[in-house]
Design a protein around this nucleic acid. Structure first.
Lengths: 152, 152
DNA sequence: CTTGAAATTCCCAGATA
DNA sequence: TATCTGGGAATTTCAAG
């Protein structure tokens, strides 16, 4: 499916676009050592083959009111397929949840949650997570400092 | 510093740019219901005030050879300032580490690590993490499924 | 709204298999 | 030869004062 293996030129283009997605095609072409049209053709090919999934603006989370980050580990009590589906659906719908991964071990989920503060976080846990029937326990670690945070 | 509070129009602009950072200014202006020049002025203001930190391309991790994700929890043994600095410096330099957060509790770090497979992961732990003097213990959970993964 | 720049399309040339 | 990739010109669209 992903036989579109990027050659050296593609890698250079990807690197530039990761560093600045709003660079103009002309500028990009010059940086990687191509002329404009083949450069644009490569970008399109990378987009269409799914190597480039999209482009996004990086917005300061504080502006959006998110000032506190937490890592929550959720353990499920029951394993009914439909309850798990409901759990995952709910997670996807909540803006506070930045990430949610199903991990090995017992059926555990690791969540990265953003909130506007402790009160907001408490409400999120009490009124959203804890109300899901299949949730057995929740454990929270608050993020004191973020050493590194790369994009996907 | 971040007194540049986004109004409703700014929020709409941010939403569009998060969804597609390579949209043209004209298209963006039309979508948010502005004409081109005030729209561009707002973008510049959002960029200059730091609300927009940058723009990036989202590249399929599989293309780059990352096929396995793990959540590792690292506990430090000693608390010497300089060892912690060294730990964090090392973490920042390793491509495998996507995220690293210092969390509450005992001095623990939560890491999101990408690798090309189990062998690569084992090598990463043995040859990089475990060799850091201040590391007391490491616990790994492998990601079986990612339910949600939003950008910052 | 106008001017200059960029994106995009089209066609041709050279390399490769 | 058939195919792939780069280059340049022409046209449309966009940026920016």
């Amino acid at each position: 499916m992903t036989q579109k293996i990027a050659d050296e030129m593609d890698r250079r283009i990807l690197k530039e676009l990761v560093a600045d997605a709003r660079i103009t095609n002309n500028e990009l072409a010059e940086r990687v050592g191509l002329s404009a049209s083949p450069c644009l053709r490569r970008i399109r090919r990378l987009e269409e083959s799914g190597v480039i999934r999209g482009y996004t603006a990086l917005v300061d989370p504080v502006i959006e009111g998110w000032t506190m980050t937490a890592i929550a580990t959720v353990r499920l009590s029951r394993q009914h397929e439909d309850e798990i589906v409901m759990f995952e659906e709910a997670i996807r719908g909540w803006d506070e949840v930045l990430e949610c991964h199903l991990v090995t071990g017992s059926r555990d989920y690791v969540l990265k949650v953003m909130s506007s503060g402790l009160e907001h976080y408490e409400r999120f846990i009490k009124e959203k997570i804890a109300r899901l029937k299949c949730v057995a326990s929740i454990e929270t670690s608050f993020v004191m400092n973020t050493i590194k945070e790369r994009r996907i």
